[in-house]
């Protein structure tokens, strides 16, 4: 039907209060403005249309046009995204986004087209840090013997185990109760998620060691993308780029807000000597490069950027 506006269905798994969702609202606004209302975006938050992996498949199948996922599930297709999970790969936020928004990041986004998933832009998802319920982590040695919940991927497991902890992969939905009941001693995440998951209610300590900075990625299915005109493609890309800049502001505000909430709830915020943690996790990258030798040059390129 050529009469009404064309609607782009965008599904993701975050709640509507999340700063990355706000970034996508910017994308929606910008695209409608650029296309003068001929291209509309309908956003489905809260995992209404499926988990991250399932949404990627729905893009490939062609029933959903776009999604936002963490880089982690993308590494099942594109091993380059694995690299982003290496602990202390990025020196700081400036370094991270100069890499991601430069030629290296762009070339990784383009690699997805081969898998019918075209990357549009990166969103800031901050850095992940440890939080614990009973024992504070001040140095890497404090991790010894602590059961830390991690996402079910090898890099995260290796990292926690190498630092001396006991990595415990567990479903995210079971985590709140697991911390509370002591099935695990702690977990790791960025400040906005630490607060939105309510885990700050049951964790006394938040150790800002910032061990990994995996970005979020906005993607569009090539099944949908290929149907767009050249002009529409430019609008979509520009809208994505603009939303990425706005989103970084939302993220910063959200981190400040979350830290305030956590502090007021009585969570002790610990600023540790990050280099000790970086030192202790060094062998993770060595192990990774040994397993994926073809990734070595990319790792070095990023480090020398």
């Amino acid at each position: 039907n050529t009469e009404g506006p064309e609607v782009l269905y965008l599904g993701h798994t975050l709640p509507q209060t999340h700063p990355v969702h706000k970034g996508m609202l910017e994308f929606q606004k910008a695209l409608e403005k650029k296309s003068k209302g001929t291209l509309k975006v309908k956003i489905f938050p809260d995992g209404q249309l499926g988990s991250e992996r399932e949404l990627l498949e729905l893009l490939q199948i062609g029933s959903v046009a776009a999604t936002k996922v963490s880089a982690a599930p993308l590494s099942n297709f594109i091993p380059e995204y694995n690299v982003m999970g290496i602990p202390y790969l990025f020196r700081n936020k400036e370094h991270q986004f100069s890499v991601l928004e430069g030629p290296i990041g762009k070339s990784i986004l383009e690699k997805g087209s081969k898998f019918w998933l075209r990357g549009l832009c990166y969103y800031d998802a901050g850095s992940r840090s440890f939080y614990t319920s009973k024992k504070a982590i001040r140095t890497p040695e404090d991790l010894n013997g602590l059961k830390i919940r991690v996402q079910n991927n090898q890099m995260a497991i290796n990292m926690v185990n190498t630092m001396g902890g006991d990595a415990t992969p567990l479903a995210y939905g079971e985590l709140y109760t697991a911390i509370q009941q002591g099935v695990v001693d702690g977990a790791e995440n960025n400040p906005p998620s630490f607060v939105s998951s309510n885990h700050y209610e049951i964790s006394k300590y938040y150790t800002l060691d910032e061990h990994s900075s995996v970005p979020d990625v906005l993607l569009i299915g090539t099944k949908y993308w290929d149907k767009l005109s050249e002009e529409q493609k430019i609008w979509v890309q520009e809208a994505a780029d603009e939303s990425a800049q706005a989103q970084k502001r939302f993220w910063k505000e959200s981190v400040e807000e979350s830290m305030k909430v956590a502090k007021e709830a009585g969570v002790e915020i610990i600023i540790p000597e990050k280099s000790l943690f970086a030192e202790k996790s060094k062998s993770v990258v060595e192990k990774f490069v040994k397993e994926y030798p073809e990734m070595e040059s990319l790792v070095n390129q990023i480090k020398n950027n």
């Binding site: 490939q60 099942n76 898998f115 991927n153």
Partner: peptide, 16 residues
């Protein structure tokens, strides 16, 4: 079958 074809063609592997 289309689902199987798509996931095999795009070489999607399970997480662990």
């Amino acid at each position: 079958l289309n689902l199987v074809y798509t996931t095999l063609h795009l070489e999607q592997l399970s997480g662990t």
